[in-house]
Every structure is written in structure tokens, then in C-alpha cells.
Design a protein around this nucleic acid. Structure first.
Lengths: 191, 191
DNA sequence: CACGTAAACATACACAATGTTCAGTATTAA
DNA sequence: TTAATACTGAACATTGTGTATGTTTACGTG
């Protein structure tokens, strides 16, 4: 099948506006944390009309998860390895590089939106991606369910570990943190 | 030393008002979760004047952590064992008894306020309560700091485990959950 | 380059919620 | 009974949201 949109041809004004809004959000998040940022702040900072914002996004959450807003790219790279194993060294490297923005998004001021999103991403990497061998069995076995719970708990612990590390201004090396994280996952998920 | 306030003698009107507000908050939290509840909701439900609310509390957070608002008693009993070990059986029992309120407070709609408060309480129970043998040493050793991080991570995992369990309508017994929680703590904090 | 379209603009509005103030009306403790 | 004080109700200023309006500007295309 051919492209539905033969030539997307995005209007320069749209690109400019979206970039302005994204930049504004980013800088504001660094300053006051995601939760504290209002749409008003964003359009003031971006110097964009109120109606213009709502022409593109329904609210600040949509702006945040807009795609060009690298919420999880902040921790994982561009690769998006999906459900594979986690490269903790790379993860901590990324976190250290984007320390300011990561802290502002995941820390106290970040709000649960971003936090739970990142947690969900990590949990998905940890728990078996619902490989239904027999699609009939609708209900997961108790072991599977507990495994799922543990994946959630592990993800939560991992995120907390990263946040603690960031908040304390990275008192350990990337390697130390990666090692501890790997141990954590192995110990917790061994069931 | 004697009491600073020889006879507190709280005006019945004050008691009544505070109770009304607390009850209103509780029922509203169960209905829509803590975050979604507004001061307006509370005073409407309590049938109390706006100014009356602000005569007693600065905001809904103050009302929540008012003392008669058993945020953590919901999980731990009245004993307040402090930094001792955690009785997971009792914890899950309490959680099961107050399932509705616990879910409303800790779940998605709960907001991070309560969640992080409970996490902090648990983390404090897990990490050594800063027993300064030599008060001179201001900076904790690296091991101590990592231990603190792990306590935070473990607390986060434990809370997540409880929330998952509650959200899934308690598909495991209290004993199963307690066992898994104990294993989790031992594995994670063994350093 | 010209032209029509779509984006951005400014402004105003309705609404909801916060937090403060104040005079008047109770209820209470003494 | 009385003096203190807690509550009421209403108004107000403030902030933020989201929508709707008509106008101007910049863009892509032909």
C-alpha cells in the first residue's frame, strides 16, 4: 500500500510553534518541575497565543508525550529495544547526561505522570511480553501474575534508585549503580 | 515538666467541624481519589462554610495529615513501631481491611503525596535510623549511603507490590504476599 | 510573483477553584 | 447570663482552564 499522506509537507509555522512550545516546556520543567508548569507558563515562555496552543494540543500532557518530547529517550537511547534486557550502563550514562531534566521530571516535582510512565516502560522490559502460547487461557496463572507484580515492584525500585542517585548528585559511578541495579533485578525476578 | 496547655478544652464546635471535614475528605477520597478532591468538594460535602475550612486548615494537605486522618495507620496499626522490623502479615491484614480507602489513596488517583509519605515511613523502618556512633562524621560512608538508597528502592518496591495486589483485587492470600515481601526485603537489603 | 489557505494572533468569555476578608449570627464555656 | 469565639454567608481578587471570535500574517503552491 502507498502512503496515506503522499507528502506530509508540514507547514514551517507549525514546526516553529511546536518547537517553541516544546522548548518552553522543557526549560520550565527544569526550573519548576513538570507538575508546577501551567499552560499559561508555557505560552508565556514560548510567546505563543493561547488559542495557538490549544490548536495543537489539548493540554500540557499531550505536549509532553508529543513524540518530540523525549520522555523516555532521556533514559534509554533512541534504540527502543522493546522488551529485551536492560543496558544499565547505558541507562545511567543517559541519566547522567540529562541529569537536570531527568531530576526535574522524575523527582519530587515531577509528578506521577512521568514517573509511572517510565516505570511502566521498565516493567514491560522486565515482565514476559504476554507470550500467549495458548491464546485460549485467558487468565494468567498465579505464578505469571506474581511475576508481573514483581516486575512492577522491581521497576519501581529501579526508578527510585535512579532518582535517589540523581537527587544526591550522583555520588556513585555509573558502573557501581549499574552493578547494583543488575543485582537488584536478578535477586528480585528470580522467583 | 507540666503540660504547656493545662486544659486544652477543645470547643465542641471545633471538634464537630473538624470531624465533619475529615469525614467528608475520607468519603470523597474513596469516591474519586485524593488528588481529584477539591477544597470546594470538601466543604460542600461537610456542609461547612468556606471561611470555616480556612480557619482550621491552610489546604487539603493539612487536613489530610491532621492526625485524626490515619494515613499510615491504614497500613500499620496504632502501635507505631517506629524503626523496628515490619510485620508484613499485619500490614497486609490492615491493607485488606481498609482496601477501599487504601486503594483510593495509594493507587493511580492517589497522587504522589500520600504515596511518597508511606514510602518514606517504610524506608525509615528499613534503613538504620542514623545511629551516629561518632557524631563528628558528618558524611555517611559510601556503604551507608548505598544502603540508604537500597532502603528507598525497597520501600518503593514494597509499596508497588501492595498497590498491585490491591488493584488486582487481592488475588493472593495475605500469607503469600507477606512471604514474598519478606523475601524481597531480605534479598534487596542483604548488601 | 500572486493568491488562497491555513496558521497564528489578540481578545474576550464562561467556568472552576483558591484563599482572604468582614459583618452578622450562632453556640459555647465560664 | 455573659463574654468569648466559632461558624455563616457573601463578596472579592486572583489564577488557571478551555472555547470562541474575527483579524492579520506567513506559507505553499501554481
Amino acid at each position: 500500500m502507498k502512503k496515506k499522506t503522499p507528502e506530509p509537507v508540514i507547514d514551517r509555522r507549525v514546526q516553529r510553534t511546536k518547537a517553541l512550545l516544546a522548548d518552553a516546556l522543557m526549560s520550565l520543567v527544569i526550573e519548576k518541575g513538570y507538575e508546577a508548569v501551567t499552560v499559561q507558563d508555557i505560552i508565556d515562555r514560548a510567546n505563543v497565543g493561547r488559542s495557538t496552543f490549544y490548536a495543537h494540543f489539548e493540554n500540557k500532557e499531550q505536549l509532553l508525550f508529543n513524540g518530540r518530547m523525549h520522555v523516555e529517550t532521556m533514559l534509554f537511547g533512541e534504540e527502543d529495544s522493546g522488551t529485551g534486557t536492560i543496558d544499565f550502563l547505558a541507562l545511567y550514562r543517559h541519566a547522567a547526561e540529562n541529569a537536570k531534566i531527568a531530576k526535574a521530571m522524575l523527582g519530587k516535582q515531577g509528578g506521577d505522570l512521568i514517573l509511572s510512565h517510565v516505570q511502566a516502560v521498565i516493567a514491560r522490559k522486565l515482565s514476559p511480553p504476554v507470550k500467549k502460547t495458548s491464546p485460549k487461557k485467558k487468565q494468567a496463572s498465579k505464578e505469571e501474575q506474581m511475576r508481573h507484580f514483581l516486575a512492577e515492584a522491581t521497576a519501581s525500585a529501579l526508578v527510585r534508585l535512579i532518582v535517589c542517585w540523581l537527587d544526591a548528585n550522583m555520588p556513585f559511578t555509573i558502573e557501581e549503580m549499574a552493578k547494583e541495579s543488575e543485582r537488584l533485578v536478578l535477586d528480585l525476578m528470580k522467583l
